[in-house]
Amino acid sequence: MIGLSHYLILSGLLFSIGLMGVLRRRNLLMLFFATEIMLNSANVAFAAVSYFYNDLTGQMFAFFIIAVAASEVAVGLGLLIVLYKKFGTLDLDDLASMKG
């Protein structure tokens, strides 16, 4: 039987895949893709908990996370455009002007 732990382990795996992407990627746009993966894994976890405990709270939360992720993508991509216009590149290693 598929229990809650199955879903949670799956969510954990997806999260760490997303984390690996975040750590590996040098292109800002690809970084955003990896962030989306992490958000989605959280959503799966919420929905699973909500199902197994018979509570709608988890789904509500997942719902709001989707809303937040959407607006975040909008603003983030806008910023990315401005960044690209200014520096001409999206490679993280070239954008290290705040080196201390």
């Binding site: 975040v22 750590l23 990627r25 040098r26 800002l28 970084l31 993280l92 290693d93 954008l95 290290a96 002007s97 705040m98 080196k99 201390g100």
Partner: peptide, 9 residues
Amino acid sequence: QTGNLSNYL
């Protein structure tokens, strides 16, 4: 403090 976002992540 490398200024590199990847490093911070």
